[in-house]
Amino acid sequence: MNIFRPTGDPSHPAAIVILLLKIWKTRSCAGISGKSQLLFALVFTTRYLGLFTSFISLYNTSMKLIYIACSYATVYLIYMKFKATYDGNHDTFRVEFLVVPVGGVSFLVNHDFSPLEILWTFSIYLESVAILPQLFMISKTGETETITNHYLFFLCLSRALYLVNWIWRFYFEGFFDLIAVVAGGVQTILYCDFFYLHLTKVLKGKKLSLPA
């Protein structure tokens, strides 16, 4: 395993934990798209079903369990514990427009036409677009008081490190997973958009609201 994995792997859960802590500390999930977090929970659930059928390493199993636990904890905080602060009126992205086409494509373009493999493919495609409801919400409201720079930083970091990991594995291990790389590329582009929105809307908004 190259160095980009043990650094890249924890970056996404780190981002989620930062989000969890932020919700917990402020007792509020305002500005966070529950739909995006729900999609991430669905992503990790469908992707890690292989936990029941194959064992790769203790590291691999524990990381997967951490991913699943963190994503469900976030969903629990948004939809149950701090439901009153959830900004559902602005979280209006129609997730069926993502889930249905993604489901269709994962049936058509996959490595192997078997239930687990199709679900894995579904999760890879879905992860690449799961941030869209959050993007939609930010572009609508222009504010994300609880989406911190840190959440954004760690999400982007995990993407960047995985891209380097794929290049590394291609050159040194002859490993190349086209589905993961294409979906990862799409996801990286969307995160650039997320980053752009953050710079133009969120930071600008913050600046304007500063006391003179």
């Binding site: 792997d9 996404h12 194959s54 790769i56 691999n60 997967k64 490595h111 997973d177």
Partner: peptide
């Protein structure tokens, strides 16, 4: 062994 289908990545 099919390297792709082991899905060792997260």
């Amino acid at each position: 062994k099919n390297a792709v289908l082991t899905h060792d990545e997260l």
